[in-house]
């Protein structure tokens, strides 16, 4: 096998992620629409911005896919003229790197809810680190900061973990994922008979 991603992997990842990029672009106004409810309720839906990485990884299951997906989704959002501007690109790269680290730590072998949620949580930590510098969130009142971080973690697990797994299950039922994954051991055994 050749090293690295094949063109098929890259194109599928990018197409799926650009699709998520469109969703992200629509997610921005929604994020601002729920913000006036106050007390960081908006943070509950922040997790959607990490989902491209885990969905793409669940489809392709190769090293580098999560990072590429998050970069592609954020650049799609950026080129469509996001209200967040250049910020999305930098956040996207950092979130992608953080998700990739977790997946790498499990050697890209595990695809269960726990590891996928951990990847989401890791992206979430990446975004919080940037928020610490960009939004001075360290200077919020302590109870308020706890609420902010807590809600974002919950959102990360719900969207990046649970929703991504649900999407992947539904996609597997449609049969498209078998186009992209290398044959399983059963397939090879069937050939050997």
């Amino acid at each position: 096998m050749r090293k690295g991603l094949k063109l098929t992997d890259i194109l599928v990842t990018i197409v799926v992620s650009i699709g998520f990029g469109i969703l992200y672009k629509l997610w921005g106004p929604l994020y601002y629409a729920v913000k006036p409810f106050g007390l960081h309720v908006d943070q509950l839906i922040y997790g959607m911005w990490f989902i491209a990485a885990t969905v793409a990884f669940l489809i392709i299951r190769k090293p580098g896919v999560a990072l590429l997906a998050e970069i592609a989704a954020s650049s799609g959002e950026f080129l469509m003229g996001s209200e967040f501007g250049i910020e999305v690109l930098v956040y996207g790269i950092v979130q992608g790197v953080f998700a990739e680290i977790i997946l790498m730590a499990f050697r890209y072998k595990r695809t269960d809810l726990m590891v996928i949620s951990l990847a989401g949580i890791s992206s979430c930590i990446g975004s919080l680190i940037l928020d610490f510098y960009k939004g001075y969130i360290g200077d919020l009142e302590t109870w308020n900061l706890a609420l902010y971080i807590g809600f974002r973690f919950i959102g990360a697990i719900l969207f990046t973990g649970v929703l991504a797994i649900m999407i992947n299950k539904a996609l597997e039922r449609t049969g498209v994922t078998s186009l992209l994954r290398p044959g399983s051991k059963d397939d090879f055994d069937a050939l050997n008979q």
Binding site: T8, I59, L171, T174, V176, T177
Partner: peptide, 17 residues
């Protein structure tokens, strides 16, 4: 989203080939 995603993946696969 599911039909949208699955169709996009199929199309991307064909284009990649």
């Amino acid at each position: 989203p599911i039909p949208l995603l699955s169709q996009s993946i199929r199309r991307a696969f064909r284009i990649a080939v």
